[in-house]
Every structure is written in structure tokens, then in C-alpha cells.
């Protein structure tokens, strides 16, 4: 157990936490506006990754045929992220329009199972159209591993963490500095009264889904770069855990979702070396597969002491965004 070892795990945790944070934002924003959990969000992340795969493959093929000059990998990546964020935002808006809007005045439970059903529909359509095969995400930029005195960091890891942070800051700026952001915050305050003074609820709802889905798409592409094997169920467990992060952060809090996302990644990753130390100290042989059991027990304990999450307010009496 050296300093290097600790740093290495910290670097790993930063990357893993980025995905939780980006996906948790989508859950959190939708909850703050519409008071419902979009359980299809994990699968929208999956759809985003696949859209990214097709956009990137298409761009590479275009460069390969000579129809366009072969683009450098980083440019393909930037275009892929932007195009996929846009397309996935459309998917998100469609999900809201088709799945949630007709049920807005229905009981909460109906809206919740709508999300689950849309998730299953997205997964099975993927199997239907792509045959359930694993697909490899194209690697766009060459991977370099740097050795900082025994701590191994790749250029992709650095990029993933920086892009995630940039997106979170951009979202924060949008919500706090723009008129639309103000409308969203107002809607989060009360989605019954605020429309009466002329803020269009449907537009804000669509916009919220669009932003959340775009962030999920970005997460999907970054995920594809880090873990290049895509499958139709990749969003399920990641989605659940990101949902945990959204709740842990305080329902509807953007900063809370980000911090809780990174915290969750940190707890999960750090549990593995912690198990090793415990094994060595007490001569036990606990397997590292108990990671999730221990990690989520810790989350449970945190929730017992902070039932409204890290940044949540009781009774939603204040601005949540």
C-alpha cells in the first residue's frame, strides 16, 4: 500500500465517477422540473453510445472512400460528440412527447413504469435491429499511456475527466446565467403556478429532456472510448447506479448530482484496495466481487444520516436547481 497505489486508484475513480455524474444529471434535472424519475435514462445513455458508434463509423468510412478528406481522429471525435448529442437529444424529446406528456396528470407510479417500459423497448429494439451482437467502438484517437512515477494515466482518461467537467460547468452556466435557465429554475420551484405567468411548461419539459439526453450521449461516447465493447444492456446497471448518485446528491440538485457521481465512483473503486488491506490485516479472503455490496452499504449509511441527500432540501421548499 503505497502512495502510488492510492493515486492510481484515485485516477481510476475520477474516470469512473465521470460517467455516474454525467448520467445522474439527466435524472436530477427531469426530477426537479417534472417531479418524476425518467427510468429510461440509462437506456438513453446506451442509445447515445450506439448513435456515436454509427456517426463515428460513418465519418471514418467517408474519409476512407475519399469522398471527403480523411479527418484527423480528434476532429472526428468532436463532430461525433456534437452530432450524437443532438440526435440523442431528439430521442429524449421524443420519449418525453410520446411516453411522459400524455401521462402528466396520471398517477406518479404510471409515469415511473412508463420509463421502465421505454427502457425495455429501447433495449429490445436494439437487439431487433442489430441482432444482439457486441459491437466495437472505434478508437478515434490513439491511446497513450503515461507513467508518472508509477501512476499510469492515459490520454483518454484525462480527456474523459476534462470533457465531463467542461460539460458540467457549461450546464451550470446555462442554468444560472440564461433566461431559459431561469425559466427552468422557476419551473423547478413550482410547475403548477409558474406556467400561469406565461412560462411554457411543454417547452421547458422538452428542453430538460433534450439537455439530459445530450449529456447521456456524451457520456455514452466517452464510455465507448474507455470500454470499447458496446452491448444493448450496457445502460441498465450504470443507469441504476447513476440514479443512486442522483438521489444521493439530493433530488434535483445539479451540483449534488455531480459530486455524488464522483463520490460513488470513488467509493466503488476504493472498496477494492480496502478489501485487500482488510484481508491482509485480518488474514481473511474476501473477494473483490463484494465491491458493490460494501460500496452500496456505505451509500445506505450516508442516506440514513442525510435522508435528503447531500444537497437536498426537505419539502422542496426552495430552488432545487
Amino acid at each position: 500500500m503505497t502512495f502510488n497505489f492510492l493515486m492510481q486508484n484515485l485516477v481510476n475513480a475520477l474516470q469512473w465517477g465521470s460517467f455516474y455524474a454525467l448520467i445522474a444529471l439527466g435524472y436530477s434535472m427531469v426530477y426537479s422540473i417534472l417531479m418524476l424519475f425518467n427510468f429510461a435514462h440509462g437506456d438513453i445513455f446506451m442509445v447515445g453510445a450506439y448513435i456515436g458508434l454509427f456517426v463515428a463509423t460513418g465519418l471514418l468510412a467517408l474519409g476512407g472512400t475519399g469522398a471527403a478528406a480523411a479527418l484527423p481522429g480528434w476532429l472526428v471525435l468532436v463532430i461525433t460528440i456534437l452530432v450524437s448529442m443532438f440526435l440523442t437529444a431528439l430521442v429524449g424529446v421524443t420519449v418525453e412527447r410520446v411516453g411522459y406528456r400524455p401521462l402528466r396528470s396520471a398517477p406518479r407510479a404510471s409515469a415511473a413504469i412508463t420509463g421502465l417500459m421505454i427502457g425495455i423497448i429501447l433495449e429490445t429494439s436494439n437487439i431487433l435491429f442489430l441482432g444482439g451482437q457486441r459491437l466495437k467502438f472505434p478508437q478515434l484517437i490513439e491511446s497513450h499511456t503515461y507513467n508518472f512515477g508509477g501512476v499510469f494515466v492515459t490520454n483518454k482518461k484525462i480527456m474523459i475527466v476534462l470533457v465531463s467537467l467542461a460539460l458540467m460547468i457549461a450546464l451550470h452556466q446555462f442554468v444560472t446565467r440564461t433566461k431559459w435557465g431561469m425559466a427552468m429554475r422557476a419551473m423547478a420551484f413550482d410547475f403548477v403556478v409558474v406556467p400561469l405567468v406565461g412560462v411554457p411548461l411543454n417547452t421547458i419539459a422538452s428542453m430538460t429532456f433534450a439537455i439530459g439526453s445530450a449529456l447521456a450521449a456524451a457520456a455514452g461516447i466517452l464510455f465507448g472510448l474507455a470500454y470499447p465493447v458496446l452491448d444493448p444492456y450496457m445502460g441498465v446497471s450504470l443507469g441504476w447506479k447513476a440514479f443512486v448518485a442522483a438521489i444521493l446528491g439530493g433530488r434535483g440538485s445539479i451540483m449534488g448530482a455531480c459530486i455524488a457521481g464522483f463520490m460513488l465512483g470513488f467509493i466503488e473503486i476504493m472498496t477494492v484496495p480496502a478489501i485487500q488491506i482488510i484481508n491482509r490485516l485480518f488474514e481473511l479472503s474476501i473477494g473483490s466481487n463484494l465491491r458493490d455490496l460494501i460500496a452500496y452499504s456505505i451509500v445506505l449509511v450516508i442516506l440514513i444520516f442525510r435522508p435528503h441527500g447531500l444537497f437536498g432540501e426537505p419539502y422542496s421548499a426552495r430552488l432545487r436547481l
Binding site: F5, Q8, N9, N12, Q15, W16, F223, Y227, V229, Y233, M234, V236, S237, L238, E268, I269, M270, T271, V272, P273, Q276, S285, G287, S288, N289, R291, D292
Partner: peptide, 21 residues
């Protein structure tokens, strides 16, 4: 090092850090 994970896991960075060490 006898490291394990559960079906569906995608991130092996923590286990691999143990293995390398």
C-alpha cells in the same frame, strides 16, 4: 492476486491495480 468481479462489470481498473501491484 485472486481478483473477482460480477457478470456485466465493465470497469476492471481497481482489480487490475491490485494485480499489477
Amino acid at each position: 492476486a485472486f481478483e473477482s468481479f460480477t457478470t456485466g462489470d465493465k470497469d476492471f481498473s481497481a482489480q487490475m491495480t491490485n494485480i499489477v501491484a
